[in-house]
């Protein structure tokens, strides 16, 4: 009986590829970027109304827009890559501290060019986006240095720029790219390539979760790196893990299509990771430096690795996508 169900599921898979990609586009991708555009617009308006770093409404608007970006950020293809929009929204990790340097230099020189939105869009990517704004709102030094008026103008400039970038991505998806995802045409040569793009969004998103969000602060046992935790100044490191899990789970389930057993296994893995993350009670992974609590963060990362294995061992083959002959080689 189960064998029969499996055969039916497999037989249905190729024919359903365009339905699947249309459905993922309509149910997941377009709403995610629409939400990012509207919450980023609200952020720009909040900064206009009150640019103070301590403003509760501004911080709340910032949090909501950043949440929306994290929930959309694994769709790193097409509109997010035009004009480096994704990097303009989110330049992280910033291994050489380019963001605080760029902001400090703007504040120090009181560069007047920031008030022109088109001009600001040509500034260093390190001075733009959510991670730059986090410094302006939460970093003890950069939220207090220089003239309050200039910091206010800079906060507004970064917020306005985020809104414009988010709007550009959403419009590009709506007007152009959604069509590319429904039927092979100019961008994708076959339904298989569309499926591969969506699968890659999931696998890359899980890789970022594993290597960046968890791997960077964990560092090595001898050299833990708590200061590398993502968005730790605003206390969002663990929150981003949960947000990205919640955003990727429906994508994984949709990619599993009618394979109910695989769907159930994926859902089970996601919920195991979520439960562990929710009970961690360590919003910025400060515990990586303490052997007792480090074990719990390592265990969380191991579960993410297990989920990655489930995807590469079962979901990818079910979609007819072979493991990368070259990408896994390393030579």
């Amino acid at each position: 009986m189960r064998a029969l169900a499996l055969i039916t599921a497999l037989a249905a898979a190729p024919a359903a590829a365009s339905d699947m990609s249309s459905s993922i586009t309509d149910r997941l991708i377009l709403p995610a970027f629409k939400d990012l555009a509207s919450s980023s617009q609200a952020l720009a308006e909040a900064a206009e109304a009150d640019c103070s770093a301590k403003s509760k409404t501004l911080r709340a608007a910032y949090g909501a827009a950043f949440d929306a970006w994290i929930a959309a950020s694994h769709y790193r293809f097409g509109p997010t890559e035009t004009d480096s929009r994704a990097f303009a929204l989110a330049f992280w990790p910033d291994s050489r501290s380019k963001t605080p340097k760029a902001l400090g230099s703007l504040i120090g020189s009181e560069d007047a060019g920031i008030t022109d939105p088109a001009g600001f869009a040509s500034y260093s990517i390190a001075a733009r986006g959510f991670y730059a704004l986090e410094y302006l709102l939460y970093d003890p030094e950069l939220s207090a240095v220089g003239s309050p008026d200039y910091r206010c103008a800079l906060t507004r400039a970064v917020s306005t720029d985020i809104a414009a970038t988010a709007q550009a991505i959403a419009a590009d998806w709506e007007k152009n790219y959604a069509t590319e995802m429904r039927v092979p045409a100019a961008r994708y040569r076959s339904e298989e390539e569309i499926t591969q793009e969506l699968l890659k969004a999931l696998t890359t998103g899980l890789q970022v979760l594993d290597d960046m969000r968890l791997g960077r602060p964990l560092g090595t046992h001898d050299t833990p790196r708590p200061n590398r935790a993502e968005a730790r100044r605003s206390g969002r490191s663990l929150r981003h893990v949960l947000l990205s899990l919640n955003a990727m789970e429906p994508l994984a389930i949709a990619l599993a299509q009618k394979n109910t057993e695989l769907k159930a296994d994926l859902a089970h893995e996601f919920s195991k990771i979520r439960n562990r993350a929710e009970t961690l009670d360590d919003p910025v992974f400060a515990g990586v430096a303490d052997p007792a609590s480090r074990i719990r963060i390592e265990a969380l990362r191991q579960q993410v690795k297990d989920l990655r294995s489930l995807v590469s061992d079962r979901l990818s083959p079910a979609l007819g996508v072979a493991a990368g002959f070259n990408s896994l080689d390393g030579d």
């Binding site: 390539e193 002959f325 070259n326």
Partner: peptide, 19 residues
């Protein structure tokens, strides 16, 4: 996807992939 091989060509490059 899975691109690695690369060689010059008259108009730019030739690329080959693991697919």
């Amino acid at each position: 996807g899975d691109v690695c091989g690369l060689a010059p060509s008259s108009g730019g490059f030739m690329a080959s992939t693991g697919t």
